[in-house]
Design a protein around this nucleic acid. Sequence first.
DNA 1: AGCACA
Length: 227
Amino acid sequence: MLTADIPPNQSIYIQNLNEKVKKEELKRSLYCLFSQFGKILDVVALKTPKLRGQAWVAFSEVTAASNAVRQMQNFPFYDKPMRIQYAKAKSDCITKAEGTFVPKDKKRKQEEKVERKREEAQRPHTANGPTSQNGAPAPSFQPNGQEAMPPNNILFIQNLPHETTSPMLQYLFEQYPGFKEIRMIDAKPGIAFVEYEDDVQSSMSMQALQGFKITPQNPMVISFAKK
DNA sequence: AGCACA
């Protein structure tokens, strides 16, 4: 019931977004928030009566979309839990890249073609049970090969130069809204925890500072802390 | 609730 029966797609469809947020800000925030799952090709949001409160995020990989659908389900975003599904159709940015883009006025015809094809395809074995295509989801991985943690208001920072101090980190991380504190452990150099007021704010900061180099050899590796 | 590409 919650998970609609829509086949995987590299684009996700998000609803229950806060309609008070301006379109451009919404798109930027969605971009920041979802970049943690992989490369984003496009974010689409419209404020027309029929389409407000919804958005599409097109990823370069289906696996990124899958992780996003699972992990960000009900994520509180501007005070409202996001409802995420796979998109029903390919994004224009995808079909354009594939060379199969069909301009708007011709889309209607195209859809009819597809329907006819389906009817012809008289399924040989008529198994009409629920298609459990996502029975055993593959473990989710970040682009950097790290296992993805679910969102958390606390960030885990790795690969810091050992001489890093907490004021140095504070200087960097306090630029982003919701910053609360830095925690470092003397016995464990090279890592730190950074706390924000909520998951949205920590996600924004992660996106902004991911890979930031305190020294040329030390690109920061930022993930959500374990709960 | 609402699946588009202004």
